[in-house]
């Protein structure tokens, strides 16, 4: 069940919690089975499953509490800002754990686009479909999310090198 592994990884990144991730995935499968009627043939099945999972998460208790606390204004500003290139050398020193903890600290709306794009290797189009946002928002959200990732990592690395 290859999709199970991917969905579970996504669920765990959303919930930070094994039990909640399991519940979320199980509910997703049940909803998917019950909702085949609403699955339009010819549309992207993988994206459909992720969308169910995401919506289930957002309506869960932990999802609802998270949704309230994320600032989403001025998303457009992040596109077109250069990655601070001198930091590339510094970034290279980051290890798995640092990257993981940086990703964990991101607000969920940022975390999910990073997970979908970088880890699940989805196209912008698929991410737009899953998150129910326009492509432009996917791009700006990714740009902001990555900027935050970089800042978190640099902060950590600077702290570590002192």
């Amino acid at each position: 069940m290859p999709l199970l592994d991917r969905l579970y990884n996504f669920a765990h990144w959303l919930t930070h919690n094994r039990e909640e991730a399991e519940d979320l995935v199980q509910e997703t499968y049940l909803k998917a089975l019950k909702g085949f009627a609403s699955f339009q043939q010819g549309t992207n099945f993988r994206a459909w499953m992720y969308r169910i999972l995401r919506n289930t998460f957002l309506t869960s208790r932990s999802g609802l509490s998270l949704k309230m606390t994320v600032p989403l204004d001025r998303e457009e500003d992040a596109i077109g800002q250069p990655a601070d290139t001198p930091e590339a050398v510094l970034l290279a020193r980051a290890d798995h754990q640092m990257v993981q903890s940086a990703l964990e600290r991101l607000p969920v709306q940022f975390r999910e686009v990073i997970v979908l794009c970088d880890i699940e290797e989805m196209s912008y189009q698929e991410i737009a479909e899953i998150a129910g946002i326009p492509m432009g928002t996917v791009m700006s959200r990714l740009a902001r999310a990555r900027k935050s990732m970089r800042e978190l990592l640099e902060e950590k690395l600077r702290g570590a090198s002192k």
Partner: peptide, 21 residues
């Protein structure tokens, strides 16, 4: 700049496939 972005993407990818059922 592109290299730095690619680097971050790769690191995220490697670190992000973390949880399995």
């Amino acid at each position: 700049d592109a290299l730095s972005r690619l680097q971050l993407k790769r690191m995220t990818q490697a670190a992000g496939r973390r949880f399995s059922p």
